[in-house]
Amino acid sequence: MPQPVIRASNLVKKYKDFAAVGGIDFEIAPGESFGFLGPNGAGKSTTMRMIGAVSTRTGGELEILGLDPDKYGPEVRSQLGVVPQQDNLDVDLRVRDNLIVYGRYFGLPTRTIAPRADELLGFAQLSDRAKARVEDLSGGMKRRLTIARALINDPKILLLDEPTTGLDPQARHILWDRLFRLKEQGTTLVLTTHYMDEAEQLCDRLVVVDKGSIMAEGSPADLIRRFSSREVLEVRFGGGRNEEVASQLGGIGDRHEVLPDRILVYSQDGEAELSRIHQLGLKPITSLVRRSSLEDVFLRLTGRSLIE
């Protein structure tokens, strides 16, 4: 692995007695697209704020581009682009002016920022909205504008905290396309998400975090291989029967999981397992064979209880 651009060792953030981040280790290589995947309250955003050099860590080591963010906050931040979870565009300013004033924070003269702002508005498909009021933009447009704003200083690392939360599928896909282009251009992307498809689409490597700790680390394919199976067979036997039927499935699949509405059978070959179930004389109401996904890994590692 080349010299990492971000290196964390036993990184801790505590709020009084509560450890939001409880001693995590990770390294991110230049040009890599790295994800923090986890449920709400897992510590993803807290970690992102520490990487973003705006939140002082409680313990451990953290280096961004070779610098300690607690000591060299402005130096670190001058090389980052940040897309926060909550948009913080200035609604009192027009779309293009948001880019102009933000560029000034990096010491750029207006004559440099102006053409860059136009270029970024093009990149974010917002050229025709340059003079619009921010309030009049849709959620997806605001997100794209926030990404454009984060790129105004040509950052080495782009931090994206739940970049597509709350967006409709079309807006998400446009955003993914833009992020993919940045990745191709060599920008290091660090993102948090709880959308598995987003993580699979965008991340070269990710960590699954829960309750402030890293549960697993690897590429999406690697994690699926390690913590799930190639395929998943979903069978439904009707309310109340799933538990009873599951007791007869011993030896079928690598393992199975009983949910209130269905049974999941993890296997290398879902169709073969379904045949075996039929051979046992069991008749599922519905059945579905699908590829195992990151969601299966996620739910296995972080559990199925609701976290609020």
Partner: peptide
Amino acid sequence: FGMNAAPIS
């Protein structure tokens, strides 16, 4: 928060 994410203290 946006200003602070840039190098502004």
